[in-house]
Computed example of a mutant assay.
Amino acid sequence: MNHAALFCHQFWGEGTYELAIEVGSADDDRLQAVLDAVWGAAGARGCYGHKDREPEEQETVPRTVASLEEFGRLLGRARLPSGEPVVCEVSAVRGGDDDGGDWLAFGVPLSALRQAGVEFEDGPYFRSAAADGWLAGIGQDAFREAPFSLGLVGWSVSGLTDAETLGGVLPESRGMVYLLPSGGNLRCGAVND
């Protein structure tokens, strides 16, 4: 197996390239529905609680909100469109309805993407058109199963804005991908700056 799919060969502190989803209200059932939809849309396999051990060295855990709260994140493996297997993780930030509700982030460590040969643009931020397209596609597929308030795609983008701030309008200048619901559909605003 290549290093991109090994838990212990990642630089976890470097951050993840992620699909961050504003779930909506703070509700276990909604969060579980989005978790299941995203995991399924990504074709993620396995579900583990420890990043310091390979999957073969630990028991699987249930893919539930309770497991997310117990372990802080859930880990598995997914395949990039190129077919390369990579480590993936999902985490949640729980909020109250006054805080915009819950957020769920599905991502891949930058080190795993590099090891899988994903290219990034030069500049002050990590940007990858290939990763943007893949993660935006996961968000679009997941939305059909479990609608959400907002999706953001990019490097460590969770919570950089929210649906209320956007007011249903895609920003003209976009340094990350926006997935914004409108009339039951999901509009995709690609990176353009």
Rank of each mutant, 00 (worst) to 15 (best):
A4Q: 09
A5I: 10
L6C: 14
Q10F: 04
F11D: 14
F11L: 15
F11S: 15
W12E: 04
W12Y: 14
G13H: 07
G13S: 13
E14F: 07
E14K: 06
E18S: 10
E18H: 05
A20R: 02
A20I: 04
V23S: 01
G24W: 05
S25G: 12
D28M: 00
R30M: 07
R30W: 06
Q32E: 14
Q32P: 09
A33F: 04
D36L: 13
W39D: 06
W39V: 13
G43T: 02
A44P: 12
C47N: 07
H50M: 14
P55M: 00
A66F: 06
L68C: 02
L68R: 00
E69F: 04
E70H: 10
F71Q: 00
F71Y: 15
L75K: 01
G76P: 13
P81L: 01
G83P: 12
E84N: 04
E84A: 15
S91T: 13
A92N: 02
G100Y: 13
G101S: 04
W103P: 02
F106T: 02
F106L: 12
P109W: 00
L110A: 03
Q115V: 01
Q115L: 14
F120M: 09
E121N: 06
G123Q: 10
P124T: 02
F126E: 11
R127D: 04
G133H: 05
W134D: 11
W134H: 13
G137K: 00
Q140C: 12
P147S: 06
V153M: 11
V153W: 07
W155F: 14
T161F: 14
A163I: 07
E164R: 15
G167D: 03
S173V: 15
L180M: 09
G184D: 05
G184K: 07
